[in-house]
Amino acid sequence: MAKIQLNLISGRTIQQGVAIEGGKEKPAYREACGIIELDGEDFKKLGIYRNSNVRVTSPYGTVVVKAVDATQGPHPGLGWIPMGPWANSITNPNTYSTGMPTFKGVPVEVEPAPNEPVLLGIELVQKACRAEG
């Protein structure tokens, strides 16, 4: 199956804001933030349908999210995952002595993952923490 390379950024969306106040234990949080917004061009390269699951992998981690159409674009070559545990599973934690992890501009690889589930936010974080056990 096709794999594509993207530059990943994250940040707030209004849906993310509403979802975090509505309860991060709820599925609505996953709908708002367990996604990656891709440009139409990148969907073509990847050869998948909108709203199907993909695995996003960076040098720092890997996560399954749902690929959706960019709501604010076009931005070919750029992937967008709203701020939250999904984005932070793969973000660049290096602060280079500034205190600030490098949340934006992470090189990632995206591949189709039709049979893998997108975890709930809390589930995702708990699983990662327990795996270390």
Partner: peptide, 23 residues
């Protein structure tokens, strides 16, 4: 939710308290 997962894993291993109205 908002730290890189590598930092979150460290919190989970330590004595820890979270004060927050939400889950």
């Amino acid at each position: 939710a908002h730290f890189p997962i590598s930092s979150v894993k460290k919190i989970a291993k330590l004595p820890s308290v979270a004060v927050d109205p939400h889950f």
